[in-house]
Design a protein around this nucleic acid. Sequence first.
RNA 1: CGCGGGGUAGAGCAGCAGUAGCUCGUCUGGCUCAUAACCAGGAGGUCGUGUGGUGCAAAUCCCACCCCCGCAACCA
Length: 532
Amino acid sequence: MKKKFYITTSIAYTNAPPHIGFALELVQADILARYHRILGEDVFFLTGTDEHGQKVVKAAEDAKKSPQEFVDVLSSRFKKLVEVLNLSNDGFIRTTDKKRHWPTVQKIWSKLEEGGDIYIKKYKGFYCFGCEAFIREKDLANGECPVHQTRPELIEEKNYFFRLSRYAKQVKEEIEANKIKVVPGARKNEILSFIEQGIEDISFSRPRKKVQWGIPVLSYIPKVGGIKSTTYVWVDALVNYISGLGGLSFISGVKNKYWPPDVQCIGKDILKFHALIWPAILIAAGLERPKNILVHGFITSGGQKMSKSLGNVIDPFELVKKYGTDAVRYFLLREIPPTEDGDFTYEKFKQRYNADLANGIGNLLARTLTMAEKYWLGIVPKIPQNTPETLSLGKFVTSGWVGNFQESIKEELIKSISSTENFSFNNSLFSVITSVFICDGYIEHHKLYKPAEKLGNKKEKIDAVLYNVLEGIRHIAWILLPFLPETANKIFEQLGLDPEKEKEKTFDETTKWGGLKPGTKFKKSKPLFPKI
RNA sequence: CGCGGGGUAGAGCAGCAGUAGCUCGUCUGGCUCAUAACCAGGAGGUCGUGUGGUGCAAAUCCCACCCCCGCAACCA
């Protein structure tokens, strides 16, 4: 049976249009999804939108729309983003989906109730309407909300509570033992120390009277003082990972082949929800926990937080429109460290694009195919006999490279793959660029651009060099498949290969030297990445 | 003393005890197949501070201090 691989992104909150940060998360998840498909696994890749809660209601009011109209528009914008980034997701879940999502949430709720993990408690706290949240007494400044400088109201509510305290210890143990692996380690420590500080039960509902835009609680526990409730937005949101798999049958014991998630991609701001509350819910509901939680950082814009008032918000649509999907994917993966904050500026984007894509990958393909056209009539030469001499990397040997062309390329491929498995996408792409360097250096060392006669070389020798460079490019294209799908396709096409067939190759098949058949006609086309 | 991360060439980072390294940028040379590209070489750093501690040896371990940045506060 095929190995399964279930990967999720967090679901985007629909109170504002998408920005570049969410694009980062989508792209990271997409690399993993595509990579695991290449490995031949049965992949399910889920993303979606989180559409309930007071902030949405407020945003809708400001836009003079009903909440439903409002989220419909925003959700479709997120869906559009998923398309323009060329994501390979299998599902897109919306929390306003009353058919798939609502019953799943209610089902989970009842599982928790059955286990005795839901109870009713009177809650008293200071509520700041500016924050739309309760503020702990110790955070008040002179009795005022530190952010809004207003006096919060003392509110008393009866709500349903979840016995989070009951599960904190187990969650902690699972994270410590890497049964739930939180990546990077710094985030793991962060959540562990947070749990160590003591965990209290948390409110899992708000009175219906106050919060209508959400999923109603269907409880068999008597309504608290006759007050109907709405499910806490985070419970609602987290359950998307279950409802997005299509059905809820497996909650009742029927196995779903994709459960549990293999990787859940999230931002550092929502670590607590995913590494504490979510696993606790799953334990309580008798479901397996996610295997990996991959926590990315934030993207700053010119070193500052993106904000409307600063006017430095980066619109992912605009970027894609200007530079193309693959260029945007490339920047996000190469320039932004996968689990740390990164910075976006147009200057950096341009530098990265020109150096790696235009002068690197694009130029290598262009120069090679031009030589092939000029001296080989655009046809792959007969598979030549390689000698240590034709495989030599010359000066590279002294720079510490393995002195053999084929081995060096293969070594970078292996490095790239192992980086991907460790979620080090930037290093994966660094290995790709290193491969480009190797090809360029190899061309130089063997003076591939000098016609054979002029050099007094034997024809076969220079044939071997060209052939090797072409094979190097083919390897590069293959490793680029998950990262830059369009580009990889274009490279295959220009090499005269069928992209569909190449995609199906395994690592072992691809790295077998000789994938390009002699006599194949190249289809040189326009530059992959015009310089900007 | 809240918890955590970090301060290494102009920028971004790696190294975490044993001749300071990578990418980008910059300068010089080479080459001409290429998207003014590519290749080679150079310049550029007393590795936050302390004439601090431990070691034969410290970016690397310990101590003190300074500075940034996260989390704590539902923006990915």
